[in-house]
């Protein structure tokens, strides 16, 4: 078949399209970062997992070592059972501590592993016993408000007994700086 200029242009067009799709998959999408090698599964029970979702990262020392495989609910203990898959290259001691952290103030939640000191390592199907729940912002705020309220009550009481002393203390603490 005779080669024409149109063939060349269409070839360039199709190649550009393929390159754009590849670029979208590699540079924009998560095709490259989603590949973990062989994994082993470990489960952990939490009283509250907050907003943790399947496929959330599992990090140790800030490095992604695995992902959340599955989240279930135990109807007997009323706890959330989080199954995580960890890359086979990384072994963790049996007394590893599993926490649920939040990336940033309102960011996504992830599982953080803090290695313990035991010699035995976690194997597939093992259970992490030491866990810490997700921090629920509403709970924290209500606790803060509660403690703040009791604090001011106590302060009022203290001020009533020795008003002059507390005022003097404050002024020396701040100095004369025009705040």
């Amino acid at each position: 078949m005779e080669r024409t200029k149109i063939d060349l242009w269409v070839g360039i067009f199709v190649a550009l399209g393929a390159a754009a799709l590849l670029g979208l998959a590699m540079k924009v999408g998560n095709l490259t970062s989603n590949t973990i090698g062989e994994t082993y599964h470990v489960s952990a029970a939490f009283e509250n997992i907050g907003g943790l979702k399947p496929n959330a990262p599992v990090k140790s020392a800030g490095v992604v070592v695995g992902r959340v495989a599955e989240i279930g609910f135990d109807p007997k203990t009323y706890e959330a059972i989080v199954t995580i898959k960890i890359d086979k290259r990384y072994e963790f001691p049996k007394d590893t501590f599993a926490n649920i952290y939040t990336a940033g103030l309102l960011g996504e939640q992830y599982v953080g592993l803090e290695a313990g000191g035991e010699d035995d390592v976690l194997k597939s199907g093992d259970k992490i016993t030491q866990t810490q729940d997700a921090i629920v912002l509403e709970k924290m705020i209500s606790q803060f408000l509660y403690s703040k309220a009791s604090e001011t009550e106590a302060d009022k009481g203290a001020e009533a007994t020795a008003p002059a002393a507390s005022k003097e203390g404050k002024s020396t603490e701040l100095g004369d700086a025009p705040f």
Binding site: F13, V14, L16, G17, A19, A20, L24, K27, V28
Partner: peptide, 13 residues
């Protein structure tokens, strides 16, 4: 169409 649309997305990014 799909070729043009993927090009559009990539160039837009």
């Amino acid at each position: 169409m799909p070729i043009l649309a993927s090009l559009f997305s990539m160039v837009g990014v």
